[in-house]
Design a protein around this nucleic acid. Structure first.
Lengths: 118, 118
DNA sequence: ATTTGCAGCTATGCAAGTGTAT
DNA sequence: AATACACTTGCATAGCTGCAA
C-alpha cells in the first residue's frame, strides 16, 4: 500500500480500508489477502512513463475531473493568448462563469505562450 | 470553416459567427479576415495523429468533460472487470450515483477486458 | 446490480456592476 | 468619449450526488 500514491483523497483511503476490514479474516493474526485491495492499488509495478491521461486514471473521479479541466483550460488560454473572452466563446461558457472557474482552479488568467502546463 | 469539425455544439457555432458578424467589415463585399476566427478553428492544418487529450482540447467544455468522464469510467470498469461496486469505492463515489452516471453516459456496466474504448 | 425519491450542494447563465487600457 | 476586456457579485435555476429504501 505504501507503493501507491494515494493522491490526496482521504475518503478513498477510508473506503478501501473499511472494505478490507470487512473482508479481512476474523483472526487478527492472519495476514490480509492482497487481493482484497483494488487492482489498481495492488498493481503498482510499472513505475515508468505514463501518458498524461493514464495519470488521471489513477485519481479519484473528482480529482481527475479537476485536473482534466485545469489542463483543458490552460490549453485554451494558451491557444487564445490569455484572452478570456475568446476562450469563453470558444468553449461555450459565460465569461463570468469562466472567471469564477479560473479562480476556483487557481489558474492565472494571463497564461501566455511560454508557460508550463501541469 | 468547413475544415473544422464543429463537434456537436450549436451554441459554439452561433457565438463564433456572431462575433465574426460584429467584427466583420461593414462593406458586405469585402472578404472577412480569417484572423477573426478563433485560432483553433483557424489552424486546422495538421490533420494527422493527435493524442487523445489533444482531441478533447478541440471540443467545447461540456463535450470535452463528458468525453473525458466516459474514457475515465470505461477505464475504471475495465480495471475492475466490470464490478461497479469496486469502481465506486475506488473513485470515491456512491454506487447509486455511479449507476446513474453510467446510464446517463450510456456506458454498459458489464465492460470487460476485451472491450474497445471510445 | 440497479432504480428512485428527495434534500442539499455545486455549477452556470444572466444581469449588473467596477476598473483599466487603448 | 467609446470600446474592449478583465474581473466581481447577487440571484435563480438546472444538474449532480449522497442517503435511504
Amino acid at each position: 500500500m505504501q507503493g501507491y500514491g494515494w493522491p490526496g483523497n482521504v475518503r478513498q483511503v477510508h473506503n478501501v480500508i473499511e472494505t478490507m476490514l470487512i473482508l479481512a479474516p476474523a483472526d487478527r493474526n492472519k495476514p490480509i489477502d492482497l487481493d482484497l485491495l483494488p487492482a489498481e492499488i495492488h498493481n503498482v509495478s510499472r513505475s515508468g512513463d505514463e501518458s498524461e491521461l493514464d495519470v488521471l486514471m489513477g485519481l479519484p473521479l473528482r480529482g481527475a475531473r479537476e485536473e482534466f479541466e485545469r489542463a483543458y483550460l490552460v490549453t485554451q488560454l494558451r491557444k487564445f493568448n490569455g484572452n478570456v473572452s475568446r476562450v469563453a466563446t470558444f468553449i461555450g461558457m459565460e465569461r463570468s462563469a469562466l472567471h469564477r472557474k479560473l479562480k476556483a482552479l487557481n489558474i492565472a488568467s494571463d497564461y501566455q505562450e511560454g508557460e508550463r502546463m501541469i
